[in-house]
Nucleic acid binder design. Structure first.
Lengths: 299, 299
DNA sequence: CGCAAACTGTACAGTCCTTGCACAGTGTTT
DNA sequence: AAACACTGTGCAAGGACTGTACAGTTTGCG
């Protein structure tokens, strides 16, 4: 930890930035603009980051923005450059630490860092490893269901934010759904995002979707591919006949860790090996053609 | 991915575009030229899109068009959401029609229109009625599970997009979770959004959360209120003892259609009557104090 | 033409919101 | 002990809201 050489108490800081002490406290209370550390006795200790936020706020106010709006911008701007490790492995550790502490603000800031190299890279290097790691630590009882829910929500929020507009791509249409009973959607959303990134159009039904509903929607939309995702093999075997039926009419792909080549062959549908990202990339590289959309045409 | 944008209050915006404040309000009222968001206190917050519309209108007026004509052109040019009815009831019908047709692009555009008067108004006038209506039509078998999934996903995506940053409000902290087994999160998210709009900080655990996990997180974060949501009464009675235990330590509120005053009294916790919006507003109007955080202190 | 109606920018009043600043009582630093 | 800082509460001035009204101009029409 740094010595308080570059830390100001409120009086000095007020003089430095030219804002009254009372106003500094008000801005902290009202807009969360400042987050000074505290001395042992409870005194505020302002840092250079606080100064930057003040300067940014002042600049925005000078442009004619109201205090509340200027503060919101200043906070948003500075929130981007929190201390986040650039190395994916460290980022992963930091994310898990933030989840353990239920620190949503930090978790979200770390996600910012994770996605700054690009959404596909963020999914590949951070999100998928994170989901895997949470699963592992949950099995080892190092993380609880609460931590898993906490992190999942924040990841889901981020992914769905990136999914905005994915229903309007220029390319072929993919229909995405989880198998009946399956409630883990994040992998499927990652898959959709990668497809969308490559121009595909996405129609998404989400968790726990009866296969006949997928069939209905497929009939309405004629997707180039239908993807059913499950992590628990039971989900797929239970819905086997309906899936086989679906496979007769559409290019149907089983995905998720429950999917395997043997089962897919039995049901007469396709099978996606590997993680969501490589699956999506394989699909993009070799898009199903209408003629060859499945091996079970009425020939 | 909505990044922080400039939001102007009327004075700054008037200076920016060179139009009197009164005139801005008149143009909004008469021609619907502007659709500023509103601050928590009801102030207009103009965006870059509003500026574009103003510039366009000014250009047309400079060419000699009357104000009404210029405004109509400006709206038509910039308004992508042309065919969206302004009346909430019609909007509701249009949304359901879009869901029936699996038309995600239109559904999303209609949601844009729903939220343009402000997020709380959108929740009150459109989202909550929509969820209710979908439930009704689903029971009457006019809509299928597929339609429900389709619409839910798009609504959820929109709501979570608005939830960005809700973990960082200046006010008291609320911890939100669905009861074990309960998987309907949208009402809970609406509730959180309204609280957030009023400055509360939100910690969110989402669907199907074991009550002991809620207790763990509560112990870590000391929220001013803990909200447990369920639509199915069975969820709450099954978790009864754990909820009572939680109620001893935190201001705990049962919400959702499964909650009732009788059950809450038995468990020694609070009860939220009514829809998510009125519940949230009641909580904001009468925030729990630490001293009175529950009726079962160790007295 | 002449008059009423509509359009359009502006104005005002009463109420509510925002924001910078202040004060009192208590605790911390030196 | 003196100077400094903290929290909580509160205020006053100005900003913004809504609703209504009012002139000056343009338009519609007998």
């Amino acid at each position: 930890m740094r010595e308080p050489e570059d830390r100001w108490r409120i009086k000095g800081f007020a003089a430095l930035v030219g804002v009254q002490e009372e106003t500094l406290r008000a801005w902290e209370r009202r807009y969360c603009l400042l987050r000074p550390e505290r001395s042992a006795g409870g005194y505020r200790l302002y840092s250079a980051a606080d100064e930057r936020r003040i300067r940014s706020m002042q600049a925005h106010m000078a442009r004619g923005l109201a205090a509340a709006q200027a503060a919101a911008l200043a906070v948003a701007e500075s929130g981007r450059d929190v201390a986040a490790p650039a190395d994916p492995a460290e980022l992963l550790e930091a994310l898990i630490a933030a989840a353990e502490a239920f620190d949503a603000t930090r978790f979200d800031a770390l996600l910012d860092a994770a996605f700054s190299p690009g959404s596909v890279a963020g999914i590949r290097d951070v999100v998928l490893p994170l989901l895997g790691e949470i699963g592992v630590r949950w099995e080892r009882a190092e993380l609880t269901v609460g931590h898993e829910h906490f992190a999942s929500h924040l990841v889901e929020r981020r992914l769905l934010g990136m999914a905005k507009g994915w229903e309007a791509g220029p390319g072929p249409l993919a229909l995405l759904a989880c198998a009946p009973g399956e409630r883990h959607t994040l992998g499927l959303v990652c898959f959709g995002l990668v497809l969308s990134d490559r121009g595909w159009r996405i129609a998404y039904l989400g968790a726990d979707t009866p296969v006949d509903q997928v069939a209905d929607m497929s009939a309405a939309l004629s997707p180039a591919a239908v993807v059913l995702c499950a992590l628990d093999p039971e989900r797929l075997t239970a819905a086997g006949p309906a899936i086989a039926e679906l496979g007769l009419r559409h290019h149907t792909i089983l995905a998720g860790s429950a999917a395997n080549a043997e089962l897919a062959r039995q049901l007469g549908v396709h099978h996606a090996a590997g993680d969501p990202l490589s699956t999506a990339q394989a699909l993009v590289a070799d898009p199903p053609t209408k003629a060859a959309s499945n091996q079970h045409d009425l020939t």
